[in-house]
Amino acid sequence: MSLEKQLTLFKWISILEGISFLLLLGIAMPLKYILDMPQMVQQVGMIHGVLFIGYVLGGFLLKQPMNWNRRQVLTVLGCSLIPFGPFYVERKYL
C-alpha cells in the first residue's frame, strides 16, 4: 500500500476514533450512569474499541514511512487516550 493510501486510511481511522471516544464519554457514559441505560455504552464501546485498535496499529505501521522518532510515536499513541487527541495528531503529524 502506498504511503498516501496509508495516510488517508489512518486519517479516517483517527477522525472516527476521536468521534467515537467523544460519543462514548459525552453521551453513552452519562446515559448509562445517570439514566441507567447501558445499551449505548455496549454499542459505542465496541465500535470505539475496534477503531482504537486500528488507530494503534496504524500509528505503529506509520512510524517508519513517516520517520517518526520514539517521542513522536509515543505522542501519536498517547493522544488516543485523550479526548480530542486524535484530532491533534491528524493536524500536527499527518
Rank of each mutant, 00 (worst) to 15 (best):
S14W: 11
F60C: 03
I34T: 07
I13N: 09
G85L: 13
K5P: 01
W12K: 14
K92R: 10
Q64P: 00
L81F: 10
G49Y: 05
E4K: 09
M29D: 01
V41W: 01
L23N: 07
L57T: 01
L61R: 14
R91H: 10
G59M: 05
T8N: 04
L24E: 00
V76F: 07
A28G: 06
Q42N: 13
Q43R: 10
C79D: 06
D36P: 03
Q64W: 00
Y88Q: 02
S14F: 06
R91K: 15
W12H: 12
P83G: 13
Q72G: 02
P38E: 05
E17Q: 07
L23P: 00
M46E: 04
Y33N: 08
I47M: 14
I19A: 10
M1V: 07
L7H: 03
R91Y: 11
L74V: 00
E4I: 14
D36C: 00
E90G: 13
K32W: 00
N67M: 11
T8H: 10
G45Y: 09
L35W: 11
L77C: 04
V89I: 13
D36Y: 02
W12C: 02
P30R: 06
P30D: 00
I53D: 04
R91I: 09
K32N: 01
Q42F: 15
T75A: 15
M40C: 01
G85A: 11
S14A: 13
I27K: 02
N67R: 14
K92W: 05
C79T: 02
I34Y: 11
S80D: 09
C79W: 09
